[in-house]
Computed example of a mutant assay.
Amino acid sequence: MQRILEHTKILKIATPPIFKHSHISMLTEAGIDLATIMEKVGHEDMKTTMKI
């Protein structure tokens, strides 16, 4: 992960969960339905996805 970040302009500490949360936010903004998002990210409980 650190090696990849060295080739970007990302200044904050980036971890896999940050990218997962960003992905979920972008899917939501794109109008993807909750069931599809949950399936993509492996959440079984809607509450987990909704927290993000």
Rank of each mutant, 00 (worst) to 15 (best):
I4C: 09
P16I: 09
T8V: 04
E29L: 07
S22V: 01
E6H: 12
A30W: 05
T28W: 02
L27Q: 01
F19H: 01
M26I: 12
K12W: 11
A14V: 15
I10Y: 10
I4S: 06
S25K: 10
I24Y: 00
F19E: 03
K20P: 01
H21M: 06
I13L: 11
I32H: 04
G31P: 00
A30T: 04
A35T: 05
K20H: 09
S22C: 05
T28G: 07
L34A: 08
P17M: 00
H23R: 07
P16E: 06
I13N: 14
S25E: 07
H7C: 10
I13D: 14
I10S: 09
L11H: 12
L11T: 15
S22K: 02
T8F: 05
I13A: 13
L34K: 10
H21S: 04
A14P: 01
S22R: 07
I4A: 13
L11V: 12
D33R: 02
I10N: 06
F19V: 05
I24H: 01
L11G: 13
H23Y: 06
L27E: 01
H23A: 09
K12L: 11
S22H: 06
K9L: 09
K20E: 05
E29Y: 06
P17K: 00
G31Q: 02
A35E: 04
I13H: 15
K9Q: 13
S25F: 08
H21R: 12
I10P: 01
E6T: 09
L5Q: 15
K12E: 12
I24L: 00
A30G: 04
A14M: 13
E29Q: 13
K9T: 13
H23L: 12
D33C: 01
K12Y: 12
H23P: 00
G31K: 02
L5W: 12
L27K: 02
S22G: 04
E6N: 13
I13W: 08
K9G: 15
T8W: 06
T8G: 04
I13E: 14
I18D: 15
F19R: 04
K9A: 13
H23N: 08
A30Y: 03
A30L: 06
A35L: 09
T15K: 13
H21K: 11
I32P: 01
I24N: 00
A14Q: 02
F19L: 07
